[in-house]
């Protein structure tokens, strides 16, 4: 079947199988390999992308479901020369080690800042229940997200800088 989908601002006409997952189409047809697959049960969040501006797990969405909609992946939010503030904060605060969960974390982080009313350390930690990292112990991820939030939406942060 055919779908039309806007991916990172580019309109794509794709021939897909009805049982294709959004994550597989992103990776295998569009060659956007930054969206990772870390589990089969929708827990780890490594495949998090934005669908119409909201974070979703691309491993738990059929590609057929996104016909006519807009998808943003990690490749669509910034580039090495022009990093998104969330990307920059991850580097600045050493919020990644092996990098595998990182795209999903960053996509969720942006969504968290955009769609939260208040952001303090507890809200960030709770907000990450759908993303698993095995390397960092989350300490620096929380710190990076808080600092990115300071830049992206200063009014939402309510605590002093997370140390």
């Amino acid at each position: 079947m055919k779908i039309s989908v806007t991916v990172n601002g580019v309109d794509e006409e794709l021939e897909i199988t009805p049982n294709a997952l959004l994550a597989d189409v992103i990776r295998d047809q569009l060659y956007l390999s930054g969206t990772h697959i870390g589990c089969d049960t929708s827990q780890c969040g490594a495949c998090t992308v934005h669908l119409n501006g909201m974070a979703v797990k691309a491993c738990t969405v059929l590609a057929a479901q996104v016909d006519g909609q807009a998808v943003t992946t990690i490749e669509g939010i910034g580039s090495p020369a022009d990093l998104h503030p969330m990307q920059a904060a991850f580097k600045e605060h050493h919020a990644l080690q092996c990098g595998f969960c990182t795209p999903g974390m960053i996509m969720r982080g942006i969504d968290l800042v955009n769609n939260s009313e208040v952001l303090d350390e507890a809200a960030i930690r709770e907000g990450l229940e759908g993303n698993i990292c095995r390397c960092t112990g989350y300490h620096n991820i929380v710190k990076a997200m808080f600092n990115a939030a300071l830049e992206m939406a200063p009014g939402k942060t309510t605590e002093q800088e997370v140390v």
């Binding site: 060659y31 390999s33 697959i37 990690i74 490749e75 991850f90 580097k91 050493h94 990644l96 595998f100």
Partner: peptide, 21 residues
């Protein structure tokens, strides 16, 4: 020193085995 490897990971350009085609 901030990590030199980070840019490829934070921009989705890491190259893991399952990315090899």
């Amino acid at each position: 020193v901030k990590r030199r490897e980070d840019v490829r990971f934070i921009t989705g350009q890491g190259s893991y085995v399952s990315d090899v085609e």
